[in-house]
């Protein structure tokens, strides 16, 4: 006797599987393209008047010949290695600076009661409403034209670090609030200075939150495209996002290099994202619940 519920699930599975295949198609397509060893956007060269089957073969995300030349050449013949290096350095520097700024500010907001505290926190919140393009033009004029920090790591790093501050501060402050004050009080009585407490007690206790903050700062810098494309004009200073667009934007169409580069750039981010998704989602929804 067939259980009606199981029968239902077969249809559900069918639906879910076909949707998943559709949803994953672009990913598979990029993977196939990256291993195809060629630059064209089509995976198969179609004959003059292709049949149904030939067309079907063309849309299957499988390369005509498997090859790793795209991965090799994107390193050796293109400047991609350099762009990736730029991205790594900029993202790491952003993370360091961003976490430092966010930790100190969040600690003060969490532990001290001082005039201007609520105003300061409100200011951080309000700044999230400023649209990117409104900031883009003044930042371009100030950083590139006045300070002449275009084409430098420093220019992008300070902008990325400050844009990630508000989110990081609010998140860290929330975490610091959960650390009991008793620990600090007893340390104060034992004669520890504020700096010692911050450095030796608070920071080690807040490691998980700091890790998330660091990840957020890193991802901000790693995935940012607009500011980088405006600030970095010379090809040698491109970051990975700007470089990837260089492969397929405008009139160039080096889809193989693009696909190989995309796989390299995405792998660490996707891995981190899948690992930490529950924290990210709880962080996003926390704001709405509170």
């Amino acid at each position: 006797m067939a259980d009606p519920k199981t029968k239902n699930h077969i249809w559900l599975h069918l639906g879910l599987i076909s949707f998943t295949v559709l949803a994953l198609y672009p990913v598979l397509w990029v993977l196939a393209l990256s291993f195809s060893g060629q630059q064209s956007v089509g995976l198969i060269d179609l004959p003059q008047d292709p049949s149904f089957l030939e067309r079907f073969r063309a849309i299957l995300p499988l390369p005509a010949h498997w090859s790793v030349t795209n991965f090799v050449e994107v390193w050796t013949e293109q400047q991609f290695g350099r762009w990736l290096w730029n991205s790594v350095i900029i993202s790491l520097m952003t993370t360091l600076l961003g976490v430092f700024l966010a930790c100190t500010a969040a600690y003060a907001f969490s532990r001290f009661r001082f005039p201007g505290r609520s105003t300061g926190m409100l200011m951080f919140l309000v700044s999230q409403m400023f649209p990117g393009t409104l900031m883009l033009i003044p930042l371009f004029i100030i950083i590139v034209k006045q300070l002449e920090l275009g084409n430098t790591y420093l220019g992008l790093v300070i902008v990325y670090a400050t844009t990630s501050i508000p989110f990081c501060v609010w998140m860290l402050k929330g975490y610091f609030d959960t650390i009991p004050y008793d620990i600090e009080e007893s340390a104060l009585i034992d004669g520890a200075s504020r700096l010692t407490i911050f450095w030796r007690i608070i920071l080690p206790l807040a490691k998980p939150a700091i890790a998330i903050t660091a990840l957020f700062s890193f991802m901000t810098a790693w995935n940012e495209f607009i500011l980088a494309s405006v600030f970095m004009e010379s090809e040698a200073n491109y970051t990975a996002p700007v470089g990837l667009r260089f492969f397929v934007g405008g009139f160039s169409s080096q889809w193989g290099y693009f696909a190989a580069g995309s796989v390299i750039v995405s792998l660490p981010v996707v891995a981190l994202f899948l690992q930490l998704q529950q924290y990210l989602i709880s962080g996003l929804t926390a704001g709405s619940v509170k």
Binding site: G120, M123, F124, F130, P138, I141, A161, T162, R194
Partner: peptide, 26 residues
Amino acid sequence: HIDAYIYVAPAMIGMLVLVFFPFMYG
């Protein structure tokens, strides 16, 4: 409250120079 202001200052200055000033400039 000098302690508190020293902790907040770096982030605050960064925000003023790179977020609020550009906003007003815009």
